[in-house]
Amino acid sequence: MIIDLSGKTAIVTGSTGGIGLAIAQGLANAGASVVVCGREQSRVDTALAALRPTKAGALARGVVADLGSAAGCKTLIAAEPAADILVNNLGIYGAKDFFAIGDADWEEIFQVNVMSGVRLSRHYAQGMQARGWGRIQFISSESALNIPSEMVHYGVSKAALQGLSRGLAKVLAGSGVTVNTILPGPTRTEGVNAFIGEMARERGVTLEEMEALFLKENRPSTLLRRFANPEEVASMCVYAASPQASATTGAALRVEGGIVESIA
């Protein structure tokens, strides 16, 4: 299968590293003109440098904005008024005892993980609908279906994205615009390495040993039995953004290594 996204503009939020950067690279390799988004100019510049060797890397550009706020979303929209592909990847997480998760924590995680996608999709979907073609993705998580007791607020925010995606797919039914969620499992990114690394230091084991322990203790149903790489998740996102995926909408596409105990 040859995926050609030449002539398409793709916005990927939270794309200065990890899964977001891998998605941006995958889309640029398929020919899309990619817009990288991040809060720091230096990280945006580094991400753009990483995109230069790709097929459409010369077309890549960056926007510096805090998309976890309404003002930040307005900054992005002003800089890039239209897009053919929107990947709502931006997200934060962190382990915290449920009884210690205060209102401010809930508000922050919903503003970043959920409302950024609401605000941007509300704008860009209208242009896609008018043009009769578009792709919107929400990067959710297996934690949306398998709420982790160590970070309930994160799982709930990702479950909200599932509902948002399905509802928006219905709003855009028959328009030529598809809307889907992508559900990664544990993925070896910089952020996850730091998260697992802290756990490894607390338990006096190596990072590799802690990854195995984490899967055994926290995700025992994994069939992959390892952490995924960002590029493995990105491959699903690139396909879902392609013309070949035109009949896939309103779906939750799982790249979680079989952790979720369901055949649906």
Rank of each mutant, 00 (worst) to 15 (best):
M1S: 04
M1L: 13
M1T: 09
D4L: 07
S6I: 06
S6Y: 01
G7D: 11
T9W: 12
A10Y: 02
I11P: 03
T13F: 01
T13G: 05
G18Q: 04
I19P: 01
I23S: 06
L27S: 09
N29S: 02
A30K: 05
V35C: 05
V36F: 00
V36A: 05
G38I: 05
R39L: 00
E40A: 11
R43A: 15
T46L: 08
T46A: 15
K55Q: 09
A58W: 02
L59E: 08
G62M: 08
V64T: 02
A65Q: 02
D66N: 11
L67I: 10
S69L: 02
S69F: 03
A71S: 06
A71H: 12
A71I: 13
G72V: 11
C73A: 04
T75Y: 04
L76V: 01
L76F: 02
A79D: 01
I85A: 01
I85P: 03
V87H: 03
N88M: 07
N89Q: 06
N89A: 03
I92G: 10
Y93L: 08
K96A: 15
G102I: 08
A104S: 09
D105Q: 14
D105A: 14
E107F: 09
F110C: 11
Q111W: 10
V114P: 00
R119F: 09
L120C: 06
S121D: 02
S121L: 01
G127C: 03
G132P: 02
G132N: 08
G134A: 05
R135W: 13
R135C: 02
Q137C: 03
Q137S: 10
F138H: 02
S140C: 08
S141H: 00
A144S: 02
N146L: 09
N146C: 08
I147H: 06
E150Q: 04
V156S: 04
A160K: 06
Q162V: 13
Q162I: 08
L164Y: 04
S165H: 03
S165N: 06
G167F: 07
G167L: 15
L168M: 15
L168P: 11
A169N: 12
A169E: 09
V171N: 14
V171Y: 12
A173G: 07
T178E: 01
R188H: 12
E190P: 09
E190C: 07
V192A: 13
A194M: 09
F195A: 03
I196V: 05
A200I: 06
R203L: 15
V205I: 12
V205Q: 13
V205A: 13
T206M: 15
T206H: 14
T206G: 15
E209Y: 14
E211C: 06
A212E: 15
K216T: 14
E217P: 06
P220H: 00
P220K: 12
P220C: 06
T222N: 11
T222L: 11
L223Q: 13
R225I: 03
R225H: 11
R226Q: 14
F227V: 10
F227C: 13
F227I: 08
A228I: 12
P230H: 06
V233T: 07
S235R: 10
V238G: 04
V238D: 01
Y239E: 10
A240E: 15
S246P: 15
T249R: 05
G250V: 03
R254T: 07
V255C: 04
G258N: 05
I259A: 00
V260E: 09
E261P: 03
